[in-house]
Amino acid sequence: MRAGKLDRTITIERQTETIAPSGSVSNGWTPVATIRAEVVQQSANEFLSGFGEAENSTIIFRLRYVPGITTADRVTYNGTAYDLEEIKEIGRRRGLELRAVATA
């Protein structure tokens, strides 16, 4: 993995629950890591669904290996949040390829 190709900055976030003193529970996203990545592929697909036409924006990121990332996490890039659909390990803990879909 060449450092020169890692020209984008992404933030990996994890969902957390916060309990207020009153006992109410609120969910939020906490940054886990802000790292450099390469955007391998970015596309937007339109498809027919039960409620009409919908647009699905997918993106693939390549980055150096970060332990502990799961599909429950999300990636924020250029102000857009992306849910992780698939995580592939490149080599033996050399890097990760994250396939993500923009949240609605």
Rank of each mutant, 00 (worst) to 15 (best):
Y77E: 11
R64N: 03
L98E: 00
P67M: 02
S57F: 08
S57T: 09
E85H: 10
R99Q: 04
F61E: 10
S57D: 11
L48C: 01
R62F: 04
I69W: 08
R94S: 11
E55L: 06
A72L: 12
E46V: 03
I59W: 00
L63S: 05
V40T: 14
N56C: 06
A81Q: 11
T80G: 09
E89Y: 13
I59G: 04
T34F: 08
K88P: 05
R92V: 07
F47Y: 15
Y77K: 07
G79N: 08
E85A: 09
R94W: 04
L98T: 00
T71P: 03
A100S: 10
E53W: 09
T71C: 09
L98H: 01
L63N: 00
I90P: 06
A100L: 05
I69Y: 07
G28Q: 15
Y65M: 05
L48G: 11
G79P: 13
T30R: 15
I90K: 08
V66A: 03
E89A: 07
Y65P: 12
T71K: 08
N56L: 11
V25A: 15
E86G: 00
I87M: 04
P31F: 05
A33D: 08
I69F: 10
V66P: 00
G79Y: 00
R64V: 08
E55F: 10
L48Y: 12
E89C: 03
L98P: 00
P31Q: 04
L48H: 12
F47D: 13
G28C: 10
G52L: 12
G95V: 08
T70Y: 07
E53H: 05
E86R: 12
D83W: 06
E38I: 10
G52I: 12
Q42K: 07
V32S: 05
Q41P: 00
V40Y: 11
E85T: 12
T71A: 08
S43L: 04
S49F: 14
L84E: 01
L96C: 02
N27K: 15
I59V: 13
V32T: 02
D73W: 02
K88M: 03
Q41K: 14
I90C: 03
E46P: 01
S26P: 06
A44F: 09
A54P: 01
L48W: 07
G95Q: 11
E38Q: 15
F51K: 12
G28E: 15
A54E: 11
R64G: 00
E55M: 05
V39I: 12
L84G: 06
E38V: 15
A44S: 13
N27Y: 15
G50I: 06
D83E: 15
A54V: 14
R62E: 08
T70E: 07
P31G: 00
Q41R: 14
R93I: 01
R92P: 00
E85K: 06
D83T: 13
G52H: 04
W29F: 14
R36T: 02
N56A: 09
S57Q: 10
R62Q: 12
E55K: 04
L98S: 00
R74Y: 03
R93A: 10
I60F: 00
N45E: 13
R99S: 05
R92T: 10
I69R: 04
A33M: 07
D83R: 14
D73E: 07
V40Q: 06
E53T: 15
A54H: 07
G95A: 14
G28I: 14
G91Q: 07
P31C: 00
A37Q: 03
S26Y: 13
E46G: 05
Y82Q: 04
G50W: 05
